[in-house]
Amino acid sequence: MPPTPRLSIVVPTLNESDTIDALMHHLLALWGCGVEIVVVDGGSRDDTVARAAPIASRLIHSEPGRARQMNAGARASRGEHLLFLHADTRLPRRADRLVARALAGSRCWGRFNVRLEGRHPLLPLIAFAMNRRSRLTGIATGDQALFMTRRAFEAVGGFPVQPLMEDIEMSRRLKRLSAPACLGARVTSSGRRWDQAGAWATIRLMWRLRFRYWRGEAAEVLAREYRHVR
């Protein structure tokens, strides 16, 4: 590990024993290339921490909440660039090089295209719509593995500490600094949300919540409804 790694990957976890082994072994190649892997656990009651520890460059504990955990991981990391990765998402090969090239010019943040992995036949269409909408609006979701320079992260004050839509709000803030680098390379993310709740029901729910958030409704109110429906 170099004294100041070029890229730090921050992974927030909470009871991820079903996915953490596969994720850490997936990240092992990047760790071997000098990428810092920071796992931030929000109080897991399973063996997530024990399973992540052998490969993580740094493992810290935080209050639960994805935004809090990602902010804590960014503060504890040392990389010039930051990438925030969900525990059920996999990066494309040599993602560190892709991020470095994307941030070498005038762009200070970006995201990947996403591919959804699961049983539902609509998942490819849903992923296509997510990628197209993101490219048109400049708004990214956490499933697309947001990345940014440390300077940009600090300039916008990190992720807003709210229980839902923290990725949407973060994108809004970063757009004031630059347009996003929208990479065609794909991350692979779990489609279990659509498999379990049904594709159309999940699409309707997410669009309804996003519209209400755009209208100014508090994220705390929307999060309670999201948890209840889910």
Rank of each mutant, 00 (worst) to 15 (best):
V35H: 12
A155H: 11
A102P: 02
T4H: 08
Q69F: 02
L125P: 00
R111N: 15
R224C: 07
R68W: 09
G157D: 01
G32L: 10
V99M: 12
A219V: 09
E16V: 06
D195L: 02
I203G: 05
G216N: 13
S77H: 07
R230K: 13
D167N: 08
M130S: 05
L209V: 00
L27E: 09
V221N: 09
N113E: 14
V38A: 02
S171H: 08
G32R: 13
A201D: 09
L222H: 10
G110M: 06
V156D: 03
A102F: 01
R176F: 02
T13R: 10
A22V: 01
D41M: 08
V156M: 06
N131K: 05
A50C: 02
I126K: 10
A127L: 07
W31G: 06
W31C: 03
V10G: 08
D167Y: 06
V38W: 01
Q162R: 15
L98E: 02
N71T: 04
F159N: 02
R6T: 14
G105H: 02
R107C: 01
W214Y: 12
D195S: 04
D88L: 12
Q162W: 08
R51N: 01
R68S: 10
R173I: 00
R208Y: 02
R215K: 12
R68H: 13
V156R: 07
M24P: 00
V40D: 03
T141K: 07
E16D: 15
L14H: 14
S44F: 02
L174E: 08
E217Q: 13
L7G: 08
R90L: 15
A102D: 04
W214N: 06
H81Q: 12
L125C: 04
A185Q: 14
R90T: 09
T13P: 04
A95W: 00
M70V: 14
C33F: 07
A145Q: 11
A72V: 03
L14G: 05
V35N: 12
A22R: 11
P124T: 14
F153S: 04
L27P: 04
D18L: 12
V221I: 13
D46T: 08
A152F: 07
S171K: 03
T13G: 10
M170I: 01
L209R: 05
R75E: 15
F84C: 10
P121F: 01
F211W: 12
H228K: 13
S8R: 05
R115A: 15
N113F: 02
L183P: 08
A87L: 05
I203A: 14
W214K: 13
P163Q: 07
L91G: 10
L103F: 01
M70G: 04
S57N: 01
